[in-house]
């Protein structure tokens, strides 16, 4: 292989990556644009809110309860070294509201609803169902992707708030009920020290994560290769990439919001 050929291949590879990245961004812009263009189909959004939101609720409550409980346990152990068990409430609450709530909720929804979405769109692509929509003069992005992104924007903040609240109760049950931290300061500490700023940050983060997870999972599913392995690969990539992006965005958002 001579030098010119090597450079040509390298260039082709870079171009391919840049085009793919551009396609990824355009996919989101396109989907968001179609949210505002007729025909409006609220029932499609409602169905997705049920699948992403309502159907994920039990899982979110379960994970939130255990997260809060382990925080209560660890927090009590550590705080009792300094004799400040009274600060347990605010420790658990801030950890959940600022970080664990939005991040863990997003990761769990990506694993549960995001993977299902990527697999569903991927197999629709593989069996020409997406082409069938196009031939019926129905825009598949508007019909399939836009409602999912809107549903993500609606569901993620709601699930995150549920996660936060359940986690705080879980921390209370273990820290106060089991370990014997003082009951009064648990909630009083939260009331006194948690500001609207903290609550805003949980909401901002969950909104951004909602868009990121839905965007990645829809994109990967929609662009799956038309074969069985294409669908499975799309599903894996969707979960991995959306998890990585959630954690990366979490860092950037925290550095802006803190």
């Amino acid at each position: 292989m001579n030098i010119a050929e090597t450079i040509e291949r390298l260039g082709a590879l870079i171009l391919e990556r840049v085009f793919a990245l551009g396609g990824f961004l355009l996919f989101l812009i396109n989907a968001l644009m179609y949210v505002f263009l007729p025909p409006y189909k609220p029932r499609l959004i409602i169905r997705q809110v049920r699948q992403i939101g309502a159907d994920s609720m039990f899982l979110i409550i379960l994970i939130a309860a255990f997260t809060g409980m382990v925080l209560g346990l660890q927090g009590y152990k550590t705080l009792s070294l300094f004799g400040s068990e009274g600060a347990l409430g605010i420790l658990v609450a801030l950890a959940l509201v600022r970080e664990l709530g939005p991040v863990l909720a997003a990761l769990m929804i990506a694993a549960r609803a995001g993977s299902a979405m990527a697999a569903e769109l991927g197999s629709m692509q593989a069996t020409e169902q997406i082409d069938a929509l196009t031939v019926m003069a129905i825009n598949p992005v508007q019909y399939l992707v836009s409602p999912r992104i809107v549903a993500g924007i609606i569901s993620f903040p709601l699930l995150t708030v549920i996660f936060d609240v359940v986690g705080i109760i879980g921390g209370y049950l273990v820290g106060v009920g089991l370990m014997g931290a003082p009951a009064g300061p648990y909630f009083n500490g939260i009331k006194a020290n948690m500001g609207s700023h903290d609550i805003a940050s949980t909401l901002y983060k969950s909104l951004v994560f909602g868009v990121v997870v839905m965007w990645v999972c829809c994109y990967k599913g929609y662009n799956a290769q038309r074969m069985a392995t294409g669908v499975s690969r799309a599903t894996t990539e969707a979960v991995v990439l959306s998890s990585v992006l959630v954690l990366a965005w979490d860092y950037f958002l925290t550095s802006i919001l803190l």
Partner: peptide, 29 residues
């Protein structure tokens, strides 16, 4: 495209919908 009807190789029926819903789909939408 409004003039077209298309039969895809594997049918491309929407597998989340019943037979009735599949056939009704273009009319509903």
């Amino acid at each position: 495209r409004e003039k077209f009807g298309m039969l895809f190789q594997a049918g491309a029926l929407f597998d989340s919908m019943t037979v009735f819903e599949n056939v009704a789909f273009p009319l509903v939408e």
